[in-house]
Amino acid sequence: MNVRPGLLLTLLLVIGGLGVLAGVLIGSTGWADLQDDGMAVILWEIRLPRSLGAWCAGALLGMAGAMAQGLFRNPLADPYLLGSASGAGLAVAVALALTGVSPQTSSLLAHVGLTGIAFVGTLVGVGLTLVLARGVEQTLRLLLAGVVVGVVLNALTGLATLWAPDILRAMQAFLLGNTGLLGWSSVAVMAASGAAALLIGLVASPALDALTLGEATAASLGVRMGLVRLLLIFAFALATGAAVAQTGIVAFVGLVAPHLVRVLCPMLHGRLILLSAAAGGALLLAADVLARGLIRPQELPVGLVTALLGGVYLLVLMHRRGAPKR
Rank of each mutant, 00 (worst) to 15 (best):
Q172W: 09
D166T: 13
M171C: 09
L159F: 10
R141D: 12
E137I: 10
Q172F: 11
A164F: 09
L176F: 15
L162F: 15
R169N: 12
A164S: 14
T161I: 15
G180A: 05
A155M: 01
L153D: 02
A170K: 11
T157I: 09
F174P: 03
T157L: 11
T139R: 14
G135H: 06
P165R: 01
G150V: 03
T179E: 07
R141P: 03
L153S: 02
G146H: 05
N154M: 06
L142A: 04
D166H: 13
V152K: 05
A160M: 10
L168N: 12
E137G: 11
L162P: 06
L175D: 10
L159P: 06
L144G: 03
W163D: 02
F174M: 01
Q172H: 12
V149K: 07
L144C: 01
M171D: 08
M171S: 09
W163T: 05
D166R: 14
V151K: 00
A160C: 07
G146R: 07
L153R: 01
L175S: 15
L162H: 12
L142C: 04
L143C: 06
V152E: 04
N178H: 10
T179Q: 09
P165T: 01
R141A: 14
R169V: 11
G135W: 06
N154A: 07
A145L: 11
A155D: 02
F174Y: 04
M171E: 10
V149A: 03
R134W: 08
W163R: 03
R134Y: 07
E137S: 13
L156D: 08
L156P: 07
G158A: 00
V151G: 00
V147R: 06
Q138I: 12
L156K: 00
L162W: 12
R134K: 14
D166K: 13
A155H: 02
A173Y: 13
L168A: 15
N178M: 08
Q138M: 11
D166V: 08
N178V: 06
Q172A: 13
P165L: 05
T161E: 15
E137N: 11
R134N: 13
V147N: 04
G146T: 06
G158C: 02
